[in-house]
């Protein structure tokens, strides 16, 4: 039988050394950001302003959502490089349906169908990734690299290389933008999905299987775990969340952009590894990924508020990634 990490059996999912470490890091980064934040004319701390904090949260939602399912994929010792391209494809398809299709149905139904199409395309793309990884037994890196290229091409094809503008008017496209870019909706979607994915991982058989598979694939197979189904599900979920993220990004920018989401897969992977999930599979979890997202979101926000140069921002983010992973390794040694 595959060994399930002892942490998994702990009745207190937060009371673990690793979680404490990442929690402390979030607090440290948060306090640091508050200290270096610029002040408003009235002397208030701009970073701590509620409007700014929620802005920072909303800005990280598209990547933070795909990072949730990316955690599942990485727990199985796989990787999904195609999510950025899926975001573009889903956004472009949603935008096409909104901008170029004028059915004689209500606005609500029109918008719903457009969203559904974007999300389903994401799910199908993820499912296809999973099928190729399991049935053809090609490494996930190669499969999702190929679909990253192919799906980006498809997105550009569907959009005819153009950005599809939805405008800010009162037609289906404009209303879609207004309804689905609101802070409560975007942040709420992320929080809900985080909870759902946390519960799936920590409270369901599927969650235990995910970890077991990444920990020792051979043992999982010999133990009779449905290895194929677990993997396909992980990639399908990753595609599904990328589809949702693509729809939200299209709403927020009121544009279906075939070049959207470039390098977002890498940002998502960064959030996952900062959160302590091991790229070799088996170890890590959703709580860490959420913390990783918060760390990146806070750092990005405060550097922007301070008007730090973009090149320096990249260097600082790199330092944070390396430090986080280094901390993870010292934990493993201890």
């Amino acid at each position: 039988m595959a060994t399930v990490p002892s942490a998994q059996r702990s009745p207190f999912p937060f009371a673990r050394w690793g979680n404490w470490r990442i929690t402390l890091t979030v607090f440290a980064v948060f306090i640091g950001a508050a200290l270096v934040s610029p002040r408003s004319f009235e002397g208030g701390n701009i970073f701590l302003d509620l409007a700014n904090l929620t802005d920072a949260l909303r800005a990280l939602v598209p990547v933070a959502i795909i990072a949730l399912a990316m955690t599942f994929v990485i727990l199985t010792a796989g990787i999904d490089l195609s999510v950025g391209a899926i975001i573009a494809l889903s956004g472009v398809i949603t935008a096409r349906i909104l901008a170029d299709w004028h059915p004689a149905i209500g606005l609500g139904l029109h918008v719903s169908l457009a969203i559904l199409a974007g999300v389903i395309v994401g799910l199908l793309a993820g499912f296809l990734n999973g099928m190729l990884v399991t049935w053809l037994r090609i490494q996930s890196f190669i499969v999702t690299l190929a679909s990253m290229i192919g799906l980006r091409g498809l997105a550009l094809w569907v959009a005819d290389n153009e950005r599809i503008g939805l405008g800010v008017g009162h037609d289906a496209g404009g209303l879609f933008g207004t309804w689905f870019s609101s802070k409560p909706l975007m942040v709420g979607t992320w929080i809900s999905l985080s909870l759902v994915f946390f519960l799936i991982l920590s409270r369901t058989v599927f969650g235990r299987h995910l970890r077991a598979l990444g920990d020792n694939a051979t043992a999982s197979y010999l133990a009779g775990l449905p290895v194929v189904r677990i993997q396909v599900a992980a990639y399908a979920l990753s595609g599904l969340l990328a589809g949702i993220s693509g729809v939200l990004l299209a709403a927020r920018t009121t544009t279906g952009d075939p070049n959207a989401g470039v390098t977002m897969e890498l940002d998502a992977i960064a959030m996952v590894v900062i959160g302590g999930t091991s790229l070799s599979g088996g170890r890590g979890g959703i709580y860490g990924t959420v913390c990783g997202a918060l760390i990146i979101g806070v750092v990005t926000n405060v550097l922007g508020l301070r008007n730090v140069g973009s090149n320096a921002q990249l260097v600082l983010k790199a330092v944070i990634i390396v430090l986080s992973v280094a901390a993870q390794r010292t934990r493993e040694r201890s």
Binding site: P38, I46, D49, A51, N52, D55, A59, P62, R163, L249, R252, T253, T255, D257, N259, A260, T300, N301, G304, L305, R306, N307, G309, S310
Partner: peptide, 21 residues
């Protein structure tokens, strides 16, 4: 001044920071 690499979504986030600052 912020760098948004020609991208609309990035410009939204950078502008949000500018507005808050």
């Amino acid at each position: 001044d912020a760098t948004a690499n020609w991208f609309q979504p990035v410009a939204m986030d950078r502008m949000t920071e500018a507005l808050n600052a």
